[in-house]
Computed example of a mutant assay.
Amino acid sequence: MDVTVSELMEQFLQSPLVTWVKTFGPFGSGNQDNLTLYMDLVDGIFLNQIMLQIDPRPSNQRINKHVNNDVNLRIQNLSILVRNIKTYYQEVLQQLIVMNLPNVLMIGKDPLSGKSMEEIKKVLLLVLGCAVQCERKEEFIERIKQLDIETQAGIVAHIQEVENLCCCQ
């Protein structure tokens, strides 16, 4: 049985990772359909804002605040995000990411595919790994504890998954 892109997107948006991301505040603006919510996630703006809360060290890279479905701006934002994540793991956490980094070109060019959803999941996993190991980890873990038990269990499984994807240098 084939699963449609909209069904995949709905499953993705209801996943524990996305539920956790929503604890950082609303992305998008209010009552939006799944497509708009998902595109707000993959444009990289909100995820870069989360990463800035995790790692407030100044970055000279400017995030494009108005992507408007521009492939190049989306790729640029996601590239900055992945670069900042990688740098944080290496410089602050002293860890090496041993998985393939998320394919920002795939996400940028064809965000509405199952493969791109898998790639954005990698991004979310890596951001989660940063959040639960950073200086403000107690605050971020407290947000997780506010979620329902089933979601918490899913996030714990994702944290274990991230621990297997990174190792100490």
Score class of each variant (00 low, 15 high):
residue 15 S to H: 07
residue 40 D to C: 15
residue 13 L to N: 01
residue 58 P to H: 12
residue 34 N to H: 11
residue 55 D to H: 13
residue 60 N to R: 11
residue 40 D to G: 12
residue 48 N to D: 08
residue 25 G to H: 00
residue 31 N to K: 12
residue 10 E to H: 12
residue 58 P to A: 08
residue 37 L to R: 13
residue 47 L to A: 12
residue 9 M to W: 00
residue 4 T to F: 08
residue 46 F to R: 09
residue 17 L to K: 03
residue 33 D to E: 14
residue 63 I to K: 01
residue 7 E to L: 04
residue 33 D to A: 10
residue 61 Q to C: 10
residue 11 Q to T: 03
residue 14 Q to T: 09
residue 46 F to D: 05
residue 34 N to I: 05
residue 37 L to E: 09
residue 38 Y to C: 12
residue 42 V to T: 15
residue 39 M to G: 00
residue 14 Q to F: 06
residue 60 N to G: 09
residue 33 D to Y: 10
residue 23 T to I: 03
residue 39 M to A: 05
residue 45 I to F: 09
residue 29 S to G: 07
residue 52 L to C: 08
residue 52 L to H: 13
residue 49 Q to A: 12
residue 27 F to N: 08
residue 58 P to M: 09
residue 50 I to C: 03
residue 18 V to D: 04
residue 25 G to L: 02
residue 42 V to S: 06
residue 47 L to E: 09
residue 51 M to F: 14
residue 6 S to D: 14
residue 50 I to M: 03
residue 54 I to T: 08
residue 21 V to A: 15
residue 57 R to L: 14
residue 53 Q to W: 01
residue 31 N to H: 11
residue 15 S to L: 06
residue 15 S to E: 04
residue 56 P to G: 11
residue 54 I to K: 03
residue 61 Q to M: 14
residue 67 V to R: 01
residue 40 D to A: 12
residue 48 N to Y: 04
residue 26 P to D: 14
residue 23 T to P: 04
residue 6 S to R: 09
residue 63 I to D: 01
residue 20 W to Y: 15
residue 67 V to P: 00
residue 10 E to M: 02
residue 24 F to V: 09
residue 64 N to V: 12
residue 22 K to R: 15
residue 34 N to G: 13
residue 53 Q to P: 03
residue 16 P to T: 07
residue 20 W to D: 04
residue 8 L to H: 13
residue 40 D to N: 15
residue 29 S to R: 09
residue 5 V to R: 00
residue 67 V to A: 01
residue 45 I to D: 01
